[in-house]
Amino acid sequence: MTAARQSDPFVRDLLGRGDYAIFSEIVAPQTCVLDLGCGDGELLSWLAENKDVDARGVEMDAAKVQKAIAKGVSCYQGNLEECLADYPDGAFDYVILSQTLQEVRRPLQVMNEMLRVGRRAIVAFPNFGHWRVRLAHLLTGRAPKTTRFPHEWYDSPNIHFFTVDDFEILAARENWTIEKRVFLDGNREVKMLPNLLAETAVYLVRRHA
């Protein structure tokens, strides 16, 4: 699995993003996918091209929306937190939220809405429990800054600093079924101590039946 992932040209050449590679493995062919914060539609156009997916995106930035639509992605310009309420229940097979859960105002509400409009949610988030973050915080006594989290506290888009363990606890409390979890350090898969060693966590979540 790991070897295949590392040799996947999609990951290596096109995106260089480990979480995208995992989404591309998780998403089944000929399904309907909503990507929240789809950027310029790179992932969705790949899924449409290679997995014959009915690909829909939401993005706030007009310049990115323009690029996404030009790529043939059905992209809606809007706020992902506000737009979810309009979609009917179970409209999508998967709702993807990549590297954004820590930026939204109400993460739990967003997760629940994702699980309402989608049969499954795929969420990737940065793990603030990673040892480098812990070390930076411990040594400097200041808001942690690492290569992965380069922002100053006052201009960071991140407003919730949660960890792999935090997410697991929430999932248990909310009774979500976790169908798959993948942890990454860069583009390498992490098999042990994810709360300490993973930079990025990817979860495939289903609402409890």
């Binding site: 007009a62 929306v65 310009q77 979609y87 009917p88």
Partner: peptide, 18 residues
């Protein structure tokens, strides 16, 4: 119009060009 379509999960791309 866009939101009416989204309520039925119809395929709609929307952009507000500057």
């Amino acid at each position: 119009v866009v939101n009416a379509l989204r309520r039925r999960n119809q395929d709609v791309a929307y952009i507000e060009l500057t």
